[in-house]
Simulated scan of single mutants.
Amino acid sequence: MGKLKTNAHLSDEERHNVLSDYTCHVQKANRQRQLFKDPVLCSKAVCSTTDVTEGAEPCSLDATLHYSWDFAQCVHYPHHAMQVGPIYFATPRKCHVFGMCAEGTGLHESVFLSMMLPGHTKFTPDWHFGVWKIKWRQSDAECMEDIAYTVKASSRSGHNIPQRVNDPSRPVVFLNWKTFLENYFKLLKNITKYYHFRCTADEPGFLICREFCDSEEVRFNLLKARPEAGCLPTVKFIPPLDHLRQWYLYEKIAPFFINEVARDIVCPKPSIPK
Score class of each variant (00 low, 15 high):
Ile147Gly: 02
Asp214Pro: 07
Pro58Lys: 00
Thr53Asp: 06
Leu113Thr: 11
Thr53Ser: 11
Ser154Met: 00
Asn17Asp: 10
Val75Gln: 04
Met116Asn: 08
Glu216Val: 15
Ser271Lys: 15
Gln138Arg: 02
Glu109Asp: 13
Ile161Ala: 05
Tyr149Lys: 14
Phe123Ser: 08
Phe89Glu: 11
Val165Asp: 14
Glu14Trp: 06
Thr91Asn: 13
Ala63Thr: 03
Cys24Ala: 14
His96Val: 11
Cys59Ser: 05
Asp242Gly: 05
Ala29Cys: 08
Thr121Met: 09
Cys213His: 15
Asn221Phe: 04
Leu175Pro: 09
Cys267Pro: 02
Leu113Phe: 09
Pro86Val: 07
Leu222Asn: 00
Phe71Leu: 11
Glu260Tyr: 11
Ala225Cys: 08
Val75Leu: 08
Gly99Ser: 07
Phe123Lys: 14
Val97Gln: 03
Pro171Arg: 13
Tyr248Arg: 03
Val18Ser: 03
Ala141Tyr: 00
Arg210Pro: 13
Ile272His: 05
Asp140Trp: 02
Val46Trp: 00
Ile265Lys: 13
Trp69Leu: 08
Leu65Tyr: 09
Gln138Met: 03
Pro86Thr: 06
Asp167Ile: 01
Pro227Lys: 00
Val218Pro: 11
Trp177Cys: 07
Val97Asp: 01
Gly158Asp: 03
Ala262Asp: 06
Pro168Tyr: 05
Cys74Glu: 15
Asp264Gly: 14
Thr6Gly: 12
Val165Cys: 15
Phe36Gln: 14
Pro171His: 11
Tyr67Gly: 12
Pro239Asn: 06
Glu216Leu: 15
Lys269Ile: 11
Asp146Gly: 01
Leu4Gln: 07
Val75Asn: 06
Lys269Leu: 07
His128Met: 08
Lys94Glu: 14
Val52Leu: 06
Trp136Gly: 06
Glu228Leu: 10
Trp127Pro: 10
Asp70Met: 11
His16Trp: 07
Gly230His: 04
Phe129Leu: 08
Val261Asp: 05
Cys209Met: 02
Val131Pro: 03
Cys267Val: 03
Val97His: 01
Asn160Met: 00
Thr234Asn: 13
Cys143Ile: 01
Asp264Trp: 13
His128Val: 08
Glu203Phe: 04
Asn183Lys: 12
Phe197Asp: 02
His66Met: 15
Trp69Met: 07
His196Gln: 12
Leu222Glu: 00
Arg164Phe: 13
Ala225Gly: 08
Thr150Tyr: 00
Arg170Met: 10
Pro255His: 14
Glu142Met: 00
Asn259Gly: 01
Val165Thr: 14
Ala153Val: 02
Ala153Thr: 03
Leu181Ser: 05
Val151Leu: 06
Tyr149Ser: 11
Glu57Thr: 06
Asn190Leu: 07
Lys133Tyr: 04
Cys231Phe: 10
Leu223Met: 09
Arg170Asp: 14
Ala45Tyr: 07
Asn190Met: 09
Tyr195Leu: 09
Phe197Ile: 07
Tyr195Pro: 13
Thr179His: 12
Cys209His: 01
Val97Trp: 01
His66Thr: 13
His76Trp: 09
Phe212Asp: 15
Ile208Tyr: 10
Asp38Pro: 09
Phe174Asp: 15
Asp214Glu: 08
Val151Thr: 04
Gln73Ile: 04
Cys95Thr: 02
Ser215Phe: 06
Ala254Pro: 14
Val75Arg: 04
Asp140Gly: 08
Arg263Gly: 09
Cys267Met: 03
Lys189Val: 14
Lys186Met: 06
Ser11Glu: 03
Val218Asp: 05
Tyr184Gln: 06
